[in-house]
C-alpha cells in the first residue's frame, strides 16, 4: 500500500490527471489516503475519486464518512496535504484551485485527529 506518489512517477501522474480532466471536465481528481500513523479509522476501499466540482467540503466529508460507515461519535478529519484543514464551506473547485498538486491531482489525508503530531 504505497502512497500514490510512490506508485507512479511525476510524469505519469501528470499525464493521467490531464487525461482525466479532459474526459471529465466537471470532476476534480482527488487522491485520499489514510494518515500513515492512523490507528482508529478504517482504510477506505478506494483511493482515487472523481468529485463534482460544485460539491462542498462538508458534502464530501459526509460522503466519505458514510462510505466508511463511521459512527456519529467517531472523529474524522480530511486534511489538504501540506495545508491542514480547508474551510468546510468551500467547493471542491475552490479547494482544487488553491491546493492542486503540480501533477494535477488534489491530495487529501484522512485522520482521527486534526493535527499531525
Amino acid at each position: 500500500n504505497k502512497p500514490f506518489k510512490l506508485r507512479k512517477n511525476f510524469v505519469t501522474r501528470k499525464q493521467e490527471a490531464a487525461g482525466i480532466r479532459s474526459k471529465f471536465s466537471n470532476k476534480i481528481p482527488v487522491i485520499i489516503e489514510r494518515y500513515e500513523r492512523e490507528k482508529f479509522l478504517p482504510p477506505l476501499d478506494k483511493t482515487k475519486f472523481l468529485v463534482p466540482h460544485e460539491l462542498t467540503m462538508t458534502q464530501f466529508v459526509t460522503i466519505i464518512r458514510n462510505r466508511m460507515a463511521l459512527l456519529p461519535t467517531q472523529a474524522f478529519y480530511l486534511l489538504i496535504d501540506n495545508s491542514g484543514l480547508a474551510s468546510m464551506s468551500l467547493t471542491m473547485a475552490q479547494v482544487y484551485k488553491d491546493h492542486q498538486d503540480e501533477d494535477g491531482f488534489l491530495y487529501m489525508t484522512y485522520a482521527s485527529q486534526e493535527m499531525f503530531g
Binding site: 487525461g19 482525466i20 470532476k27 478506494k46 475519486f49 472523481l50 463534482p52 460522503i63
Partner: peptide
C-alpha cells in the same frame, strides 16, 4: 514486437447525491 503495457486505473466517480460508480481509466 514489444507488448504495450496497458494499465487499468479504477476511479470512484461521485455524483452530487453521494452515489459512487466505478470507472476504469485505461492508460498505456
Amino acid at each position: 514486437p514489444a507488448a504495450t503495457a496497458v494499465a487499468k486505473n479504477v476511479y470512484a466517480v461521485l455524483d452530487l447525491y453521494g452515489r459512487i460508480t466505478a470507472v476504469s481509466i485505461v492508460s498505456s
